[in-house]
């Protein structure tokens, strides 16, 4: 085996190793995004809060949540000062 072949092999291995490192840095802290796909959040199943009989879709649910959040202010409460 000539020296040139050995050097080539070493380079190939180092290249593979650096690729692995790049992969690892890419994976080390996954994004904490809010993507919801196929009933799963980043691989974990859950049903959104607006799904069910109580609300007719996401808009209505959000409207209700906003209304309830506002109720926590005593300044704007119905009948409040």
């Amino acid at each position: 085996m000539s020296n040139a072949i050995i050097v080539k092999r070493i380079l190939a291995v180092l290249f593979a190793a650096s690729l692995a490192v790049v992969f690892q840095t890419g994976c080390s802290e996954p994004s904490q995004g809010l993507e919801y796909r196929d009933g799963r959040y980043a691989g974990k199943p859950d049903t959104p809060n607006w799904q069910g009989d109580a609300f007719d879709g996401k808009r209505n649910w959000e409207k209700e949540i906003k209304r309830r959040t506002k109720l926590q202010s005593e300044y704007t409460r119905p009948g409040g000062a």
């Binding site: 050995i6 291995v13 690892q24």
Partner: peptide, 26 residues
Amino acid sequence: RNGPITLYGGLLLILVPISIGLFYQW
């Protein structure tokens, strides 16, 4: 933990077997 330990630890566990394999080959 998510930084140096994972990164350099992983690097160590990849590079050491590779160097041992190369040494054996050589």
